[in-house]
Design a protein around this nucleic acid. Structure first.
Lengths: 128, 128, 128, 128
DNA sequence: GTGGTCTAGACCACC
DNA sequence: GTGGTCTAGACCACA
């Protein structure tokens, strides 16, 4: 995994885990890797993973069972989805509109670009 | 002007000037405020403005005339627009699509939200 | 290290590092000294080193790993050499030729002077 | 005339005048334009020309006759040529050699480049 | 007056 | 420990 530099590595890893959860790539109520395991796998400092897990715990996405490990909460998916949708409609979308306005990008252009992007995904989003 | 904390003040000021240029609120080939002037006006340190101007200068958006001040380049608008459009189509839009995918947001839903945003916008300025 | 006064200290340090890289005195993909370290060693302010490193970073010669330090990029040598060769053939050499023209210096004279320079050079290190 | 930004405008103008003198484009013992005239022609501040002339006066290249104007000294050409040749052999050339060394540029390459540059001048330097 | 550079020192987030 | 940013203040060259 490569990291951007406009966001902390810890948060990027937390986001990454969140996405795996809503994509179904991590089992609900399943155990996630230990701090050390994941740190080794990602090539980062265990402290960093600690902060990622703390963040997720904070949002009630995962829980810690002492001495055993971290587990995905039952309603993790719902929490993540809601959080992201709020974020999307409250911030991303208005910013998008502002940019379109500023850059003279029409909705036709937007629509076309979106569809062409989605068709590249083929299979995942293509049928919509 | 208020500053966000996820981006340096210097860059926010640079972006702000860029937007004023493409909106036509700063004259092409016109002089922009001196480093000290703008610093005073914005309530920041002159060094910070220096960094803003340095950023714009090495994007070829402004130029310096020694001992006189900074001036907006002739093709500043073109450079800014191109830069932002590239950014938009290369990063913002793909990320948008990825989010739509992830959050199960259809284009129809997107369109509706955009329109409601626009109505609020024009409503605020128009209906009063 | 002594500094000339026709170029900023920050840039002189950046150039100095570049030369060490193409001479092989700094390992490709190796870590370079931390900002504070080099600042202490050179007897300058850390901010000055920051500007040196920033310069090298946006020429893609070095990269930052957050919280760890700066590292020399894999193709740093190539980038530096290309940059300098371009500079050499596009500016230094034409200026040289212009001077030769202006000062009535023939290629033969140039050649002789170069050879005498080289002999002094090797003489110093060799003949003693 | 366009100015570079690594040297003061005053010095660039002084150099420019020096070159015109050794090229024969300004008459030995002739009058050169008044400070105000040249300032207007060059689009710079008269103070700047003042400093150019002061510099040349300092080197005994021109002299001031009070109330009349500035005149080119009899041995101006000799002074300029000597100064420049010293500069050339003491600084430019060693730096050139250092660059060639660093950039792995051979003398054959240098020679070829010089000749191709000189042939582009055709007429002025071509017959040498 | 203009910008350019540097210092000193602070505070922050991050690893 | 690492870099990143900002402030405050100084000094300089230049127009």
């Amino acid at each position: 995994m490569e990291f951007k530099d406009n966001k902390s590595i810890a948060l990027q890893i937390a986001d990454n885990l969140s996405e795996k959860i809503i994509e179904g790539n991590i089992q609900i109520e399943g155990r996630i890797p230990s701090v050390r395991e994941l740190a080794a796998e990602m090539g980062v400092n265990p402290n960093t993973i600690m902060r990622s897990y703390a963040e997720l715990q904070n949002k009630n996405i995962i829980s810690n069972q002492r001495g055993i490990g971290y587990f995905v909460n039952k309603d993790a998916k719902k929490i993540i989805m809601e959080g992201r949708r709020n974020e999307f409609f409250a911030h991303n979308l208005p910013e998008l509109v502002r940019q379109m306005d500023l850059l003279d990008i029409s909705y036709e252009e937007l629509k076309a670009s979106i569809h062409s992007l989605q068709n590249n995904h083929t299979g995942k989003a293509g049928a919509n």
